[in-house]
């Protein structure tokens, strides 16, 4: 499995936000995208996910097996929003995503335990604090299996302890042979990962 970006350019609202971005990631590779506000980190992630059309260049994905033939089917996208319904309970939210996304990985209760929130599965999602909501969104990455994780500011709102917990989860995913692209300001403490610096052009 390989994910290759070849002289990729991204546009938002007709304006070029970044251009000439190239990287090649294989199994177990991580890529940290850094840069000032407005440098195009989110745009890059959304372009890679296929939610935005590529402005220039191309993204190639060489699938490892028949399970995930295309990049869109192989990736988890964690954006700014958590993608959870306030009126439903935490467990209902996660169970829905597990069933909808397919390829079940961890049971909901185990995924909640991995983010340290196994006692609040019965609460409506809207009652949680910002950090807890983010951790539930992270638990979504665990209930269904996807080899590629695209993370946009994954640690926004997390406390120190949860950050360390999340870094461990990412390490485990990389050791499993996954690919991670994360846009973040924070030093994630992952060694052996590449860094991509986007600057204002």
């Amino acid at each position: 499995m390989r994910l290759i970006a070849d002289r990729l350019g991204g546009k938002r609202g007709g304006e070029t936000v970044f251009s000439d971005v190239s990287f090649a990631l294989g199994q177990g590779d991580g890529l940290i995208v850094t840069g000032p506000n407005g440098a195009g980190k989110s745009t890059l992630l959304r372009t890679v996910a296929g939610l935005l059309p590529t402005g220039a260049g191309a993204i190639r994905f060489e699938a490892a097996g028949a399970d995930f033939p295309t990049l869109a089917s192989a990736c988890h996208y964690l954006g700014h929003e958590n993608g959870m319904k306030k009126a439903l309970t935490v467990s209902e939210n996660l169970a829905f995503w597990q069933e909808f996304l397919g390829s079940p990985h961890l049971p909901v209760i185990d995924a909640l335990e991995m983010v340290g929130l196994d006692t609040i599965g019965h609460l409506p999602f809207g009652y949680l604090s910002t950090g807890q909501k983010r951790r539930i969104a992270i638990a979504r990455l665990l209930v269904s299996y996807r080899p590629v994780w695209l993370l946009d500011e994954p640690t926004a709102g997390l406390d120190k302890h949860s950050e360390i917990q999340f870094i461990a989860l990412m390490k485990a995913h990389l050791e499993d042979g996954g690919i991670i692209i994360a846009a973040t300001h924070l030093p994630l403490g992952l060694d052996e990962v590449k860094e991509l610096r986007l600057g204002l052009t």
């Binding site: 990736c75 954006g79 958590n82 959870m84 909808f100």
Partner: peptide, 9 residues
């Protein structure tokens, strides 16, 4: 709430 992105993805 971001679900639409995931549904489309």
């Amino acid at each position: 709430d971001g679900s639409l992105d995931l549904l489309m993805l």
